[in-house]
């Protein structure tokens, strides 16, 4: 079966992002960019499904500026077969991305769509669910285990109290949690091979999707700073401070 994997170009997870001084946006100049960690897990899961003989073809797709090609090349180096970039300079929001992905799904007809549960920049945690709703597919969100069995897929989900397993009929959308797998590193030969793989480019206009943002960011600001604390010498002093100064125990 064909598997579609959605990947997003985001700021590297180790970078501490700061708002610009004028509060209009975050400062992403000269900041290291990378594939969103949850998307990396999605790619890895798709590749494992192929290695198990379940998946026959993996198509990686991204929505973003021209430079997002880099992240698609990474997905190709990790084992995706070909890639599609929906090129746009608009910061497309989850609903818009879900609509673009729906258009791709209609064209490609994958049996399974795997994507991250959230992007670490917007922290929205919406796109997979929205795509599932628009296409009428079942959804296995926050997946820590995925098992395809004939025309259905069992997904073990990380929920607040523990784990929940649901069975979805295919085609379905799965969003990955951190514990689903440990992504591999791309080897140099695979990175070289990835340069020869097909990367098609399309646009929201070509797909007939209106990606006008529905939610406008008026301002960004740093969170309230915590005032610097003190170091205590021993447990007795700590307990004393907690009892008499902070009065929390």
């Amino acid at each position: 079966m064909k598997v579609l994997v959605a990947v997003k170009r985001v700021v590297d997870y180790n970078v501490k992002v700061r708002p610009k001084a004028d509060g209009t946006d975050v400062d992403l100049n000269n900041v290291k960019m990378a594939i969103n960690p949850f998307c990396e897990i999605a790619v890895e899961e798709a590749v494992r499904l192929k290695e198990k003989g379940v998946a026959t073809e993996i198509v990686a797709v991204s929505v973003g500026p021209k430079v997002a090609q880099e992240q698609l090349r990474t997905a190709l180096a990790l084992g995706a077969d070909r890639a599609i970039l929906v090129e746009t300079d608009v910061a497309v929001q989850p609903l818009g991305i879900a609509k673009l992905l729906k258009a791709i799904v209609e064209k490609e007809q994958p049996q399974l769509v795997v994507m991250g549960k959230q992007a670490i920049d917007g922290d929205n945690n919406q796109t997979g669910q929205m795509l599932a709703a628009l296409t009428g597919m079942g959804q296995g969100t926050f997946a820590s285990e995925v098992a395809v069995d004939g025309d259905s897929v069992s997904v073990t989900r990380e929920v607040d109290g523990g784990l929940q397993t649901v069975k979805l009929s295919l085609p379905a959308v799965v969003t990955t949690d951190l514990r689903l797998n440990e992504p591999r590193y791309a080897s140099l030969p695979n990175i070289m091979k990835a340069k020869k793989k097909t990367l098609d480019t399309t646009s929201p206009d070509e797909l007939g999707v209106d990606v006008t943002p529905r939610v406008t960011t008026l301002k960004v600001e740093p969170p309230a700073e915590r005032s610097a604390g003190i170091k205590v010498a021993d447990v007795a002093e700590l307990v004393d401070k907690l009892k008499n100064e902070a009065k929390v125990i």
């Binding site: 929205m130 795509l131 529905r214």
Partner: peptide, 23 residues
């Protein structure tokens, strides 16, 4: 914004053709 709310609400938003404001 529990796992339940995060699971269901974006689906609701898409069915209503509106964006969602998370968290």
């Amino acid at each position: 914004a529990t796992t339940n709310g995060k699971n269901t609400m974006p689906r609701v938003a898409a069915l209503l053709d509106v964006g969602q404001v998370s968290d």
